[in-house]
Write a protein that binds this DNA or RNA. Structure first.
Ligand code: MN
Ligand code: MN
Ligand code: MN
Ligand code: MN
Lengths: 218, 218
DNA sequence: TAATAATTTTAGATTAGCCTAAATAAAATA
DNA sequence: TATTTTATTTAGGCTAATCTAAAATTATTA
């Protein structure tokens, strides 16, 4: 198996390369893992030796098939544990990430598959992120940022692209939790802020910065 | 917090000093942690620095108050996770120990207390071992080895002093699981083996070696 | 395109946890 | 009690993961 640290690097590379299929840079990884570039270079050599990544000096890095597999498995574990913490233990969606960062390294395929069944094979975690199934398949939904919606458009809040506790708590306070139906009432030209109606009841104004991090299914 | 490794040493010292309040020796710890005596000495110095143990060169070691506290907390976590694995995820009692060895190091008081509540604050784990409460209190039951029972005596199987998978599976096959009512039918003088009746139905003969590792509440 | 800036890698150290072999202390035995 | 055996500690090294500082490479800009 891979070490705790190796797993965290693989996960970092995965998250950094999602969407853009570009190679990931040393500095990006250093930032995400809270280490220094020199340390990252050391680890990249090691992961490359193990054939978990494709690495060319100075040219950045991509995950190999086995590296991708390992990364997706860690993410599966992370998201299932987050679901467990919220649905079974009563945690709030802003409280679970750090604990899941530890739990995701528990190493037992049987455990995670039984947990999956116990939870009813959930499709998404408490933040709306898709949970890979046991074969590693991820069902991505097509989601749109609120900041990209036009006046009059409607949709259901289905994800967030910012997972910090402070942001999630704000959404909670605004009533913009997962499943909320929203309609864009007005786009304020001056600063890009947006007025929207939640569940056909409440009107709220949110900044462009907030709107960029809320993902909606149209 | 303490490192994964430090926690394992504290746990080892705790288990080795249970019952006999004697100081624990370097070699005992080395055996329990699958390391060498020299490595243990290194760690004992470190734990002593941190005031987690009382250590005098060549004289063995005992847990300090804070060390005991830490050890009991790890054991609480271990046993609660074992209970979870058996009661919620459907694991057998011989399958949970290794996974719990990993889970016991997850570091969140909130998590473990919520898990405790979710599980209904169980008193004992799947092996009959008492689960410390959130204040660290352990309710030890007075249990007797089957090997110490006399002919005609009755009791309820309530614990095991051997946790290996092979032993637990044997008990399962014999029908000697936790909660079984047993009565000593006959003591065989020749080899110390014991004939007993389980739940007033089945008769079984068990060796002295097996009998020594089954704990009964009279 | 040549100079400058930014990024990445290498060199050389550090720390935790582990090891073997040698030295020392304690316990057992003659 | 002197000797031998056993247990423990010390000495010296190793590996994984990290760091800072310096060197090398790539990217940017004048
Ligand atoms: Mn998370
Ligand atoms: Mn999540
Ligand atoms: Mn156990
Ligand atoms: Mn147990």
């Amino acid at each position: 198996m891979h070490s705790f640290t190796e797993e965290n690097y693989l996960k970092a590379i995965y998250h950094l390369s999602e969407g853009n299929l570009m190679a990931v840079s040393t500095n990006q990884i250093a930032e995400m893992t809270n280490t220094k570039a020199a340390s990252v270079t050391d680890m990249l050599k090691k992961l490359s030796e193990k054939k978990l990544i494709n690495y060319i000096k100075y040219q950045g890095v991509t995950l190999s098939n086995s590296g991708l597999n390992a990364a997706v498995n860690i993410i599966r574990k992370h998201r299932l544990w987050e679901f467990f913490l919220v649905e079974k233990l009563g945690f709030k969606w802003d409280e679970v990430h750090d604990i899941a960062e530890e739990l995701e390294h528990i190493n037992s395929a049987t455990l995670i598959n039984r947990l999956d069944d116990f939870l009813g094979n959930p499709a998404v975690d408490p933040h709306g992120d898709p949970i890979p199934d046991r074969s590693g398949l991820i069902k991505h939904k097509k989601l749109v940022k609120v900041s990209e919606m036009k006046a009059g458009e409607q949709g259901t809040v289905s994800g967030v692209s910012e997972h910090s506790s402070v942001f999630l708590k704000l959404l909670e306070k605004l009533g913009l939790t997962l499943g909320s139906k929203i309609m864009i009432t007005e786009l304020i030209e001056f600063d890009g802020s947006i007025i929207l109606t939640i569940n056909q009841k409440t009107d709220r104004t949110i900044s462009r910065e907030v709107a960029k991090n809320i993902l909606v299914m149209l």
